[in-house]
Design a protein around this nucleic acid. Structure first.
Length: 295
DNA sequence: CGCCAGGCGGGGG
DNA sequence: CCCCCGCCTGGC
């Protein structure tokens, strides 16, 4: 990978195993979108949004080039390289997954189809809160709720592309209270979001410490928050705490397990089972989407 | 209208 | 201990 700056943007060339569309479209992140005028059918190569308190725009004009707009090399190195997981060798991870799974044929196909997906490293609090919101909910509505909460309780970022808002801090949501949070149309999740905000604000749940715990202990710690169970904890740990050995099981993964792996247990998927899960998840939804187009 | 959407918590068996 | 139901809301 070659890192260069043209004085305005950071330009990465010779990148591999990175697909911006798959990465931002696989249900792990709710705050990045293509420009509004992008047609659904065309390949989407530009995604922009807010993370870590900043507005940022990414463009992948060719498979091996990534442009990070209005960004210095320093900012790339300290924030976006980690966020996009560009410091991680996915070629090696993919072969490790296949090796541990004894070259399982379904996994082989899923990796082929999903190649380029990267597990983003999002802000821990944002991941916790976002996946509390995700329970019993669909992606468009999750996105809408997070946008509303950010507008109500985040701080404003003015950009040439419009006004954006940072993700609300635990403190701002704690101060807001359940009733104000409920005005974002979050439904019964208001008390869950509030409980999370309260416990994180008061230090009853320490997200920095959770980072250093084993996956098992980290899961227990997160489940102290009302509204966090095994599924939400697993997603938060995978997408916000760099825990690759969790295995979120949702309705899609239940289908996958039943269909391809009826007699396997979780250990079969190896130490990168969180990433393996993401490939299988993407693959199953890809098949479902193609089936519905074919009819 | 009813059902469902990337679950969880509480109650009853 | 496990199973199962209700839950806010919006889209179909």
């Amino acid at each position: 990978m070659i890192i260069k700056s043209n004085g305005r943007d950071v330009i990465l060339s010779n990148i591999s195993d990175f697909d911006i569309e798959k990465t931002f479209d696989c249900g792990q992140c709710f705050r990045f979108d293509p420009p509004e005028n992008t047609l659904f059918i065309e390949k989407r190569t530009v995604f922009s949004g807010v993370a870590f308190g900043r507005y940022i725009e990414f463009e992948q004009p060719t498979p091996d080039t990534l442009i990070i707009k209005d960004c210095s090399i320093e900012e790339y190195e300290s924030i976006w390289k980690r966020f996009l997981a560009l410091d991680i060798d996915y070629n090696k991870i993919n072969s490790d997954i296949l090796c541990e799974m004894q070259d399982d044929s379904h996994m082989h196909t899923a990796i082929k189809v999903g190649n380029g997906i990267r597990i983003l490293l999002q802000d821990p609090w944002e991941a916790v809160c976002s996946f509390i919101i995700s329970q019993n909910n669909n992606i468009p509505r999750i996105k809408k709720i997070i946008k509303t909460l950010s507008m109500m309780f985040g701080s404003e970022i003015v950009t040439p592309n419009g006004v954006y808002h940072t993700f609300p801090t635990p403190q701002s949501l704690y101060e807001a209270g359940i009733d104000k949070i409920a005005e974002a149309r979050v439904g019964y999740r208001a008390k869950h979001i509030y409980d999370a905000a309260k416990k994180v604000s008061l230090g009853q749940v320490n997200l920095d410490e959770i980072k250093n715990l084993t996956t098992e202990d980290a899961t227990k710690a997160l489940c102290e928050i009302n509204g966090i169970g095994p599924k939400v904890a697993a997603c938060a740990l995978l997408f916000g705490f760099e825990k690759y050995d969790v295995f979120p099981i949702d309705v899609w993964m239940k289908k996958v397990l039943l269909k391809y792996y009826p007699d396997k247990d979780i250990d079969f998927f190896g130490k990168y089972r969180g990433i393996a899960q993401q490939y299988l998840f993407y693959y199953e939804r890809y098949i479902a989407a193609n089936d519905s187009l074919a009819v």
